[in-house]
């Protein structure tokens, strides 16, 4: 149990480091890459929480698939909606 608790603590440290990283990145002049970086870090944090805190690493394929499904479905929703918003102005020249 002790080893597992230490592991949880290490993940927590990693999460806080990621939080610090995303705040620092938000202050850097990164231009268009900024949202990509902040969301990439958010995904990394979510992955750590899912994998270790939510014990997806111990779950069977079905539970993992269920959590993955929500992620994949949201990406489908965002991508196809964005395909409208990003190209809406192209024709109105």
């Amino acid at each position: 149990m002790k080893g597992l608790l230490i592991q949880l603590g290490l993940v927590w440290v990693a999460l806080l480091i990621l939080l610090a990283a995303t705040v620092i990145a938000a202050h850097l002049p990164l231009g268009a890459a900024k949202p990509w970086i902040s969301y990439a870090i958010a995904f990394a944090k979510a992955a750590l929480i899912l994998w270790v805190f939510m014990e997806m690493r111990k779950e069977g394929a079905i539970a993992r698939l269920a959590m993955m499904a929500a992620m994949v479905w949201l990406i489908m929703m965002m991508t196809l909606s964005a395909s409208d918003y990003l190209t809406r102005g192209w024709l109105s020249g």
């Binding site: 995303t22 705040v23 949202p35 902040s38 958010a42 944090k45 979510a46 805190f53 939510m54």
Partner: peptide, 21 residues
């Protein structure tokens, strides 16, 4: 705990959406 972690994850995404731009 599972529910609590999910609430946490949602905040992890709200944070860059609202505060970081």
């Amino acid at each position: 705990a599972l529910y609590w972690h999910l609430v946490d994850i949602i905040w992890v995404f709200l944070y860059p959406t609202l505060y970081l731009p």
